[in-house]
Simulated assay, not measured.
Amino acid sequence: MFNFNKKEKKESQNNKDSQKSTDHILSLSKTIEAILFYKAEEVSVSFLVKFLGVKKEEILKAIERLQENLKSSPIGIVLNNNKALLVVKKEYSNIISELKGEEKSGELSNSALETLAIVLYKGPISKSEIDEIRGVNSSYILRNLLVRGLVERKIQNAKTVYTQTIDLMRFLGIQDKSELPGFEKVKETLNKIENTDVNDVFNTNNSETYENEVGKSESESEENFNK
């Protein structure tokens, strides 16, 4: 009887450990999904390992679990060269193509002009830095600017950054960013905002400075952007 109880307890403990491991991987997969959604770009496995403080094997298992969870979703996850990315599945490619056409033909919103001004005056700049300056997630707007060919994404010092395209420079009729209206003053303002608490920026007089300086550059170029 004693041996039976001992074996039963061991099996019970193994089941608990197995459940904990399953719950951990499930939780990790949801966390990875949130990170990929926010980043809206390729994220390396090595970054996830370092950022989340877990083993590579756990990350890979969590990505496999996420792939299973997304089977019935229009969104999928691609793992290529140890980099993960959320994508729209190919069966929805037609509707996405139509959406891209709409994005190209419509006028740029104030938020898009604001983001474009930040890239122009502060770029090359990462998405997280843009988000910090604006105080909101800029994924959708950056994608729109990429689709329009106004900004481009590249790797700089192992980090993804955004910068203006040659076509945009040509469209604005400038050869160097220093030719932009009030370039040094606007860049200085953006640097100050980046080094200031976001709440202070958008709830104090700093926000007026930001709107005046960046807004001025937007208004001077808005007619050209929206032609």
Rank of each mutant, 00 (worst) to 15 (best):
Y140Q: 09
I63E: 01
I75G: 02
E64Q: 07
G149R: 01
N212H: 14
G101I: 06
E184N: 10
L150P: 00
D197S: 08
V78Y: 09
S18E: 13
D17G: 05
N14I: 08
T160G: 02
V49E: 02
E103S: 12
N82H: 06
E179D: 09
I118G: 02
V151G: 00
E33C: 13
P181A: 09
N82L: 11
S12G: 06
L180H: 06
K16E: 10
N69L: 15
I130G: 04
I35Y: 01
L150V: 01
L145C: 05
N15V: 07
K55Q: 09
Y210Q: 00
A112W: 01
L108T: 00
L79Q: 04
E64V: 04
L190M: 05
I133M: 06
V151P: 00
L146W: 05
I118P: 00
E129G: 06
G173A: 08
K185I: 14
E114K: 15
D167W: 05
V201F: 11
L168E: 00
E184R: 09
K50D: 08
N5D: 07
F2S: 14
K192N: 10
K20H: 11
E114R: 15
S109M: 06
A112H: 01
E58N: 11
L66V: 05
N224E: 09
L79N: 03
K127A: 11
N94W: 08
N15K: 14
A158D: 07
D167I: 06
N206S: 11
G135A: 07
S72N: 07
K154N: 05
K55H: 10
L120S: 12
G106I: 13
L48D: 00
L150S: 00
E184S: 14
K30Y: 04
S21Y: 14
T209Y: 15
E114L: 15
I25Y: 05
